[in-house]
Amino acid sequence: MIDNTKIDKEAESTPPSGAGRLVIINYGAGNIQSIKFAFKRLGIDAVLSDDAEEIKAAGKVIFPGVGEASSAMAKLKATGLDKIIPTLKQPVLGICLGMQLMCNHSTEGDTTGLGIFNVDVVKFSKEVKVPQIGWNEITDLQSELLTSIPENSHMYLVHSFYAPKCAEMIATTHYELDYASALQKKNFYGVQFHPEKSGVVGEQILKNFLSL
């Protein structure tokens, strides 16, 4: 029996041109290999790029990020991509620090963000252990990005700063308080958790992103 899903994926993995291509923004501040491998497990060959034209031409864009906000933002500015990302029209998924940089501001390094999400990122207090490391639940799921994801699914998180509850919130997580663990504004999506490290549920979220 022919597995059509597999064939579709293989076809998608070697597109003839830039259209439909999945591009992971490579600006020297990401867990890029893990994300690339996660898509490879889904049959998609993602392209790593810091080239504005290649990113603009992509079918979908992943904006990763790990580390400290101000130095990551400095790297982004050095490539000029800080101007490009907010103008993108295709689905864009920010992961972890990538999501935080898409917000207005972060208190980490007093960093001005890309201003896509209208919320300011702040630090957890000393009432809880910082960083939060481990698997926590996502609730109040609201976006097509999270279609078919069960409420209270566990996702893997590693972070010291968070986006407070806001209008663009599409998932809530509780650690010290309820905060926004996923955001959406039009074609821009952001997740604080790591779908690429969150088992089969994380894989489903990546699949959902691919079918947006």
Binding site: Q33, S34, A38, R41, V158, K197, S198, G199, V200
Partner: peptide, 11 residues
């Protein structure tokens, strides 16, 4: 590490 990262979906 490269081979593990390629295969597994947890940290």
């Amino acid at each position: 590490v490269l081979r593990v990262a390629e295969k597994i979906n947890i940290p």
